[in-house]
């Protein structure tokens, strides 16, 4: 236990309760790893992600981010470092360039250059698209990759992924997970991934947290 705490951690949940939806006695999310939250729908996985990015606060208990109690953090600042990708990605009004730059505009940072944007589109395998194109016309898979590109451009420390490929077919799911995995290796990223696919959880994560009815039923650490 002691040795576990001494390791660098991103998040530590201590006796966290959120309404009657979630109750977590103890959970450690380590830096540089992918932690998957696996379980049936309605078991509190998404609620846990929302707690981690500070969209909601626990009813009781505390969530630590890098040893700091999140209750004491400026949550707007926190959400610049810990970005959540929702299950369904919305395209914002404007063309593809506007959509890719919207994170920068939200965070009041300068826009990215077209070269940076093109490079990112290549990384997320959005091909044959022009920066002037209207993303409303993109397919579900393309919109999802656009949402991912939008987040990666902001270079967060942690990405919280809420079933990033649930609405997509298996092949696109593989592509997205492959992309995320490659990016993680390059940038030492920390991911928390909500999934209801055990296959995805097994293939891409170091830690699998099994959840049921708002509680953690088992934690499996993979030794590779």
């Amino acid at each position: 236990m002691v040795s576990q705490i001494e390791e660098a951690f991103m998040f530590l949940l201590d006796n966290v309760i959120y309404k009657d939806i979630l109750s977590v006695e103890h959970l450690l999310i380590k830096e540089g790893q992918t932690t998957s939250l696996f379980g049936p729908s309605g078991c509190g996985k998404t609620t846990l992600l929302r707690l981690l990015c500070g969209l909601i606060s626990p009813t009781a208990g505390q969530v630590l981010y890098k040893e700091q109690n999140m209750e004491e953090l400026d949550l707007v600042l926190h959400r610049k470092k810990v970005i959540m990708m929702p299950q369904i990605s919305h395209a914002f009004p404007g063309n593809l360039r506007d959509n890719l730059n919207i994170g920068a505009s939200f965070q009041e940072r300068p826009n990215f250059t077209d070269a940076q944007l093109d490079n990112m589109l290549e990384q997320v395998s959005i091909k044959d698209k022009n920066l002037e194109d209207n993303p409303e016309l993109f397919s579900g898979g393309e919109k999802q990759r656009l949402a991912l590109a939008r987040i990666l451009l902001l270079e967060p420390e942690v990405i919280l992924l809420d079933e990033p490929s649930a609405a997509l077919d298996a092949q696109i799911e593989e592509t997205i997970m492959g992309l995320l995995n490659a990016y993680k290796k390059q940038h030492q990223m920390t991911y928390v991934l909500v999934t209801h696919s055990e296959k995805i959880a097994n293939a891409y994560s170091e830690v699998i947290v099994y959840m049921d009815d708002g509680r953690i039923s088992r934690i499996e650490e993979k030794t590779s």
Binding site: V76, R79, P86, F92, I102, F106, Q107
Partner: peptide
């Protein structure tokens, strides 16, 4: 609400998120 939250997730202040 979902769009405002997406903006918040990307680090927007409440005012920026609600601007439209």
């Amino acid at each position: 609400a979902p769009r405002i939250e997406t903006a918040l997730m990307l680090g927007a202040t409440p005012k920026k998120a609600a601007m439209p």
